[in-house]
Write a protein that binds this DNA or RNA. Structure first.
Length: 124
DNA sequence: TAACTGACTCGGC
DNA sequence: AGCCGAGCCAGTT
């Protein structure tokens, strides 16, 4: 299993997050699993915290934890920005929790081509 | 170089 | 249904 690729782990995470459609959300674990690093969910969160000044921008607000909780909201300024962006896309938030999480959930492993192909077709 | 740190997850109570 | 402890891995110090 090639754990190393031509792209940094961070860059891979960002690429996947950019593929999440507006109005949908995904989880750290789902991204990690898609990247063949199912145990690296924490790293995904770590990568997202570093994504705030990434180019092109990363829609980090569409990534929540497995309970649909907005655990990363403190990475935004103000922290309410994460919930506001989601609600602007039609995702209902209550008490920092995504409502109808099961319906809004978007799984990269299901909706995206295999990671190898996905990164192959990526520009740059 | 070794130790510490997380925007997490899973399983057991 | 919600809390607690252990495992996880790349980056940073």
């Amino acid at each position: 299993m090639p754990r190393k690729t031509d792209l940094d782990f961070f860059a891979q995470v960002w690429a996947v997050v950019r593929a999440v459609p507006p109005g949908r959300v995904t989880t750290y674990g789902a991204i990690a699993q898609y990247l063949s690093a199912a145990r690296a969910a924490r790293l995904v969160g770590y990568a997202l915290r570093a994504s705030l000044n990434a180019h092109p921008p990363v829609p980090a607000h569409r990534v929540v934890n497995r309970h649909g909780l907005l655990t990363g909201k403190f990475g935004f300024s103000p922290p309410t920005l994460m919930a506001e962006r989601l609600q602007a896309e039609g995702v209902l938030i209550e008490n920092d929790r995504v409502q109808n999480f099961a319906q809004k959930f978007w799984d990269p492993s299901y909706h995206l081509p295999p990671a190898v192909l996905f990164f192959q077709q990526l520009p740059c």
